[in-house]
């Protein structure tokens, strides 16, 4: 499904963000990617999303290889991999439903299906009653749910979450992680980057990967 083989990433000014990292994420797996700030969590997710290419090594995502994938075809990976972030990255001035519809529209969903699908996705994340609310009028936890609904628009096999609870209070954090577990129970793999050890301890069934200064220093369930 996702396979990193001896992946290193060096930035011209920052130096190495990742060094020789290898791991796999299987179908339907739930994994936390832990580490302090600057440990390489976001870089790992960016490489899986193919927003960046490794300096050496290979990232494979459902058969697409970072070595062979031309830039013009990266959209194919993006439709198979959903992404959410700490700062939600929603379109301001638009409603929750418009944000989800936008993702469907720009990826070529048939026009007639867009509204019902957006509503169904918002229901899936428990936000149907607030579908018409503008995103700045709803809470952070709700905004993150909109972001999740948007990430699900193309029915991805994996959800990458980069510190998705970083801006949320404890209750909203629980709600979002429970939502991820719910999606995982329906077969979707989840890879969630976080530096919150307490949060990780609450979910002992999850696999834990830990990065430190760009190196993978711990894997609770190597495959």
């Amino acid at each position: 499904m996702i396979k990193l083989s001896n992946v290193s990433k060096e930035y011209p000014k920052r130096g190495f963000a990742l060094r020789d990292v290898s791991f796999q994420i299987q179908k339907g797996e739930f994994a936390f990617l832990m580490g302090h700030s600057g440990s390489g969590k976001s870089t790992t997710l960016r490489l899986i999303h193919m927003a960046d290419r490794p300096t050496s090594g290979e990232v494979r995502v459902t058969g697409y290889s970072s070595d062979k994938m031309p830039d013009r075809e990266i959209w194919k990976v993006r439709r198979r991999v959903g992404c959410v972030f700490q700062d939600f990255r929603l379109l301001p001035g638009r409603s929750a439903q418009e944000n989800v519809s936008f993702a469907l529209e720009v990826t070529g969903a048939p026009r007639k299906t867009i509204q019902p699908r957006a509503q169904r996705l918002l229901s899936q994340v428990g936000l149907a009653p607030k579908a018409g609310a503008l995103v700045h009028e709803i809470s952070g936890g709700e905004q993150q749910r909109v972001a999740v609904a948007r990430a699900l628009a193309n029915d991805p096999f994996v959800l990458l979450a980069d510190e998705p609870t970083g801006n949320l209070d404890d209750r909203a954090t629980r709600g979002i992680v429970e939502l991820f577990w719910d999606l995982n129970a329906r077969g979707m793999a989840v890879l969630m980057a976080t530096h919150d050890l307490e949060l990780v301890r609450r979910y002992p069934n999850a696999r834990v990967l830990e990065l430190d200064q760009g190196r993978l220093v711990f894997d609770s369930n190597p495959t």
Partner: peptide, 16 residues
């Protein structure tokens, strides 16, 4: 912002 979201969710460059 729109361009960013389009790329995020997998819109093709031609579409953008």
């Amino acid at each position: 912002d729109e361009i960013y979201v389009m790329r995020l969710v997998g819109a093709t460059n031609g579409f953008i």
